[in-house]
Design a protein around this nucleic acid. Structure first.
Length: 800
RNA sequence: GCGGACGUGGCGAAAUUGGCAGACGCGCCAGACUUAGGAUCUGGUGCCGAAAGGCGUGCGGGUUCAAGUCCCUCCGUCCGCACCA
């Protein structure tokens, strides 16, 4: 046997064997319980894998490998989210077609992923930019269209002037483009929209039965932003001005109203306002402001619409109407009833314009600030004496009876802006005919493939590069056969990823996106790990998408993922985010070259709590390398069971390790699982001769983390079958426990010594032993003993 | 501003959920073997103290025989939402 731990030879050897024997390939097997583990598939960028990616991949690889050894039929797939802007930007710079650079990048990613020994079923690898795949993305878009959930609308969308592309609300972070960080502007554009808001309630309510980490649930709930309230109609001239409010019970306290400057009434009744110049100037001014400027400053501004007053339907009172940019056009009806006594924003505005306030709830001190809590109603006619909940019910009831209002639920969630003015994405399978309007192309003509273009430049007007491919654009109407033009925008990169987990179950199917049997057997995803940054993007989109397919009867379950967890980022050794521009990116290739994939994998699991950010440290990596080498070296001391025997302490160490690792992997406490393995190895190191059973157990427990080394040593023990096929050891709690325990002895809560005593000893015996300590006798000599507390097998506290 | 998470040695971190704080690893110190390699092995390592002992989980208080863990005040860091009516 070679003395040196030659990880290069070992890893190369086993990767080849696994690949040749397709050891991780899975098929439907009704005799076995399935387990579907999923990690977010990468965008194949030109930079290749960085050390952040494998944190998630290794974690679920560990879980998958353990589940396999526990007898499950495990699906652990990988693929590529291959449409997207970087490839296109690269093409603009270099002229290299995105299809070519993407294929190269996928090759490189695949090489890197394989070098890390993940147990992916590579036969199921998918590429969202291949026509075989995006045929089905397009097909699903057509289903959305046919069910009225995809529609074209001209709205003010978020536009990134740097990427030259429209963005969905979810892609705007604090007024900036999620991808490039440029400030987003508004642009009125015809867009394909997806009616995700129709699913808002179910996207919230169905979270309840899912095993998602709380952070994810609350973020999705907040993003959807459901609020219960009412719509109320106020007379405004001879028109009706409708507002949304969550507090209809405070309607007796309304002293004025406010419209968003963009509200249609402002233009509609302009001729009737007395201060038109002032109003127009204000509207003009706000239209120039970005969202960021509008919200950054909470000082209120506004202008009264002089000439028309509104009538409070509850009191009959005539009240002034203002426009102000603190009222948003996109939320509710773009108009509010202002209750300055009980809303801090209205309060600030009323103070500024010296408007009256009417307190309608008991409590607080409205001379100082708005009172926003619950209280009994006053000054409120028929609502007097009621609290908030009762008041709400009564107020809505009254509005319904008198025909000026209704209960209403409002959402912050907007419909999904689905058009991207770009080239490298799925063509939207729609054509525009002057006679028939927008028409879907026939399903049998799918896929609608991307034409090969040379010029990838989008323009500032927001036209896709596809619009220049006239041969492709000009087509015939599927309905009347007349002249028609294809849609030239493409889908967002969130389209392909909205259903990729379904494709993995049956990736080669050319009749349907996946067969019923495959979906029935493999779905749901049992465990999905991914980044927090996708919570209100991919994760929300794909839940919606899946629900839609469920409603159509195409998938058997109403939710796609049973369990969702999230990993922390890996930071550079100086604590900064790793990035090309900072020049601090650690390339996994380098680590694999110098220390091997097993060390790399184990280090990623040992680096720190899985859900928290962790700093890369080459020194700590060295420690893990030493550990892995030690495991290799221990082999020399392994003896057959007939030559050596296991002491109770050996047995204890082994079972404790089995129990720890089993439990901690399930809880994603990988760092402490590795600690436990280290403790066990320290025990083995201290032995002269290691019984083979103890070393075998080590290899099994270690195999999810360091599969190559485990496989090699397993073979050297004489096994011809892979350790992947071995069964996971079962720990015995009884054997893991010591029959002698060390009990701490405290005096007044302070440690004064320890006693060794038989486990589960009588309290009296424990007391006796504790009092026999020289230290105890000395320290209690003066004060005497008041009380002794014994906690079984743990502690004795003597109160002196 | 609102909401959430967190704060433990020189460093990364553990702590069966109220019961010996600092497991495991890094680093450091000493020794062994080799002796020029960032190699390997053994022992040590929270702080102060010669020792007895004292002090220690962001600060201050509280509950308890016993608090990193529970309660209150404050400070700090990170994340999410951000005029959503």
């Amino acid at each position: 046997m070679e003395d040196r731990y030659n990880f290069k030879a070992i890893e190369k050897k086993w990767q080849k064997i696994w690949e040749d024997e397709k050891i991780y390939h899975v098929e439907i097997d009704d005799k076995k319980e399935k387990f579907y583990a999923l990690v977010e598939f990468p965008y194949p960028s030109g930079q290749g894998l960085h050390v952040g990616h494998p944190r998630s991949y290794t974690a679920l690889d560990v879980i998958s490998r353990k589940k396999r050894m526990q007898g499950y039929n495990v699906l652990y797939p990988m693929g590529f989210d291959a449409f997207g802007l970087p490839a296109e930007n690269y093409a603009i710079k270099t002229g290299i077609h995105p299809a070519i650079s993407t294929a190269e990048n996928i090759k490189n990613f695949t090489r890197q992923l394989k070098s890390l020994g993940f147990s992916f079923d590579w036969d199921r690898c998918i590429d969202t930019s291949s026509p075989e795949y995006y045929k089905w993305t397009q097909w699903m878009f057509l289903q959305l269209y046919k069910h009225g959930l995809a529609y074209k609308d001209k709205i003010a969308i978020n536009w990134c002037p740097s990427c030259k592309v429209g963005l969905a609300n979810e892609e705007v972070v604090n007024g900036h483009c999620e991808r490039c960080g440029a400030e987003v502007v508004h642009k009125n554009k015809e867009q394909w929209m997806i009616a995700i808001t129709k699913y808002a309630d179910r996207l919230i309510d169905d979270l309840e039965e899912l095993d998602f980490i709380d952070r994810v649930k609350t973020q999705q709930i907040n993003w959807i932003g459901r609020s219960d309230g009412a719509e109320l109609d106020f007379e405004f001239g001879d028109d009706k001005l409708t507002v949304f409010t969550t507090r209809p019970d405070t309607a007796f306290g309304v002293t004025y109203m406010v419209l968003a400057p963009e509200h249609q009434f402002v233009q509609k009744y302009m001729s009737r306002f007395e201060n038109q110049a002032e109003i127009k100037a204000y509207v003009e001014e706000t239209s120039k402001k970005s969202d960021l400027e509008r919200t950054a400053n909470d000082e209120k501004t506004g202008v009264e619409l002089k000439g028309i007053k509104a009538k409070n339907p509850y009191t009959g009172e005539m009240i002034p109407v203002f426009i102000s940019d603190y009222v948003l056009t996109g939320y509710g009806t773009g108009a509010i009833m202002a209750v300055p006594a009980h809303d801090s924003r209205d309060y600030a505005f009323a103070k500024l314009f010296n408007l009256p306030m009417i307190q309608v709830l008991e409590g607080g001190d409205i001379s100082k600030e708005a009172f926003e809590d619950d209280g009994l109603h006053i000054n409120s006619g028929f609502l007097n004496g009621l609290n908030k909940d009762e008041g709400m019910k009564k107020a809505i009831e009254y509005a319904v009876q008198n025909g000026f209002g209704r209960a209403k639920v409002n959402y912050k969630l907007r419909d999904w802006v689905f058009s991207r003015q770009r080239y490298w994405g799925e063509p939207i399978p729609m054509v525009y005919c002057e006679h028939c309007g927008w028409q879907p192309i026939d399903e049998k003509d799918l896929p609608l493939t991307l034409p090969n273009v040379q010029d990838f430049l989008p323009n500032d007007e927001g036209e896709s590069p596809l619009s220049k491919a006239t041969d492709w654009v000009n087509t015939t109407c599927p309905k009347c056969g007349g002249k028609a033009r294809r849609e030239t925008d493409v889908m967002p990169n969130w389209a392909g990823s909205s259903w990729y987990f379904l494709r993995y179950t049956d990736p080669k199917n050319d009749k349907e996106f996946a067969s019923k049997e495959a979906l029935k057997y493999w779905m749901n995803v049992d465990w999905y790990n991914g980044g927090m940054e996708h919570t209100t993007l991919h994760l929300l989109y794909s839940r919606f998408w899946h629900k839609f397919l469920y409603d159509c009867g195409y998938v058997p379950t109403k939710e796609p993922y049973n369990k969702r967890t999230s990993h922390g980022m890996i930071l550079a050794s100086n604590g900064e985010k790793m990035s090309k521009s900072r020049g601090n990116v650690v390339n996994p290739d380098e680590i694999v070259e110098n220390y091997g994939a097993d060390t790399f994998r184990l280090y990623e699991m040992f680096i720190g709590p899985f859900d928290q950010a962790a700093q890369w440290s080459e020194e700590s990596l060295m420690g893990v390398y030493r550990f892995v080498s030690k495991v290799y070296a221990l082999f020399k001391k392994v003896y057959r069971n007939e030559d050596v025997s296991m002491s109770a302490a050996d047995l204890r160490a082994m079972h404790k390790c089995i129990l720890d690792v089993t439990e901690r992997v399930d809880q994603m406490k990988f760092n402490t699982a590795v600690s436990s393995l280290m403790t066990y190895v320290n025990h083995l190191s201290s032995m002269e001769k290691i019984p083979v059973q103890m070393y075998e157990t080590l290899l099994k427990l270690l195999s999810p983390f360091t599969p190559h080394l485990s496989e090699e040593m397993w073979a050297r023990l004489g096994y011809s079958d892979s350790v992947v096929l071995a069964s996971w050891p079962i720990g015995d709690k009884k054997l893991a426990q010591d029959d002698v325990v060390t009990i701490a002895v405290q005096i007044n809560g302070k440690m004064r010594g320890t006693i060794e005593i038989e486990k589960d000893s009588d309290d009296e015996d424990v007391k006796k032993a504790a009092l026999a300590l020289e230290n105890v006798a000395r320290q209690t000599a003066e004060s005497g003993i008041k009380k002794i507390i014994v906690v079984k097998n743990r502690i004795v506290n003597i109160v002196a």
